[in-house]
C-alpha cells in the first residue's frame, strides 16, 4: 500500500467519524443513559479502597470483584437509604442513582475474583469486554 492510499483511507475514516460522532456524543451528554463505559469509569473510582478493579483481597474493605450483581446492588441501596450501618459507604452510595449502581454492579461481577497483583493485563481487558457485552454491547 502506498503512502497516498494510506492517507486517503485515513481521510475517509476521519470523515466518517466526523459524520457519526458529534451528534451521538451530544445525545450521550444530555440523556441519562448509562453506558457500559460509564459503568467502568465509575467502578474504577472505587479502587483506592477496594483495589484495582475491586481486586483487593487482604483488607477490611472487601473485594468487589466477582460479587453477584444483586449482592452489590443490595449493599449499595441499603447504604444509600441508611438501613445498613456504615463508616463512609452511606455517603458514597448517596452519590449514585439506581442505574449507576446497576452499571457498576455488572462491571464488578465480571472482574476475576483474585488479587490484582496476580492478574494479567490481558485478563482485565477480557473482563472489561465481558462487562460491556453484559450491558448489551453498549459502549
Amino acid at each position: 500500500m502506498t503512502n497516498n492510499t494510506l492517507r486517503l483511507s485515513g481521510l475517509c475514516l476521519s470523515l466518517s467519524l466526523f459524520a457519526g460522532t458529534p451528534a451521538q456524543a451530544q445525545d450521550d451528554a444530555k440523556s441519562s443513559s448509562i453506558t457500559a463505559k460509564l459503568g467502568e469509569a465509575m467502578a474504577q473510582q472505587c479502587a483506592p479502597c477496594h483495589g484495582t478493579n475491586g481486586q483487593a483481597m487482604t483488607e477490611a474493605m472487601p473485594p468487589l470483584a466477582g460479587l453477584p450483581v444483586e449482592t452489590f446492588e443490595r449493599a449499595m441501596l441499603a447504604y444509600r437509604d441508611g438501613s445498613r450501618d456504615a463508616v463512609i459507604m452511606d455517603r458514597v452510595a448517596r452519590g449514585f442513582t439506581d442505574e449507576e449502581i446497576h452499571a457498576m454492579a455488572i462491571w464488578f461481577e465480571k472482574q476475576p475474583y483474585k488479587a490484582w497483583q496476580n492478574t494479567e493485563l490481558e485478563e482485565a481487558y477480557k473482563a472489561s469486554e465481558a462487562a460491556k457485552n453484559a450491558m448489551g454491547g453498549q459502549q
Binding site: 483495589g51 477490611a60 474493605m61
Partner: peptide, 20 residues
C-alpha cells in the same frame, strides 16, 4: 476505631492502585 482501621487499609490499597 473503624475509621482508623479503614484509614490504614486505605493507604495500603491506594498506593497499590497508583504504583502497581
Amino acid at each position: 476505631i473503624l475509621e482508623a482501621v479503614y484509614q490504614k487499609n486505605w493507604h495500603r490499597e491506594f498506593v497499590k492502585d497508583v504504583f502497581y
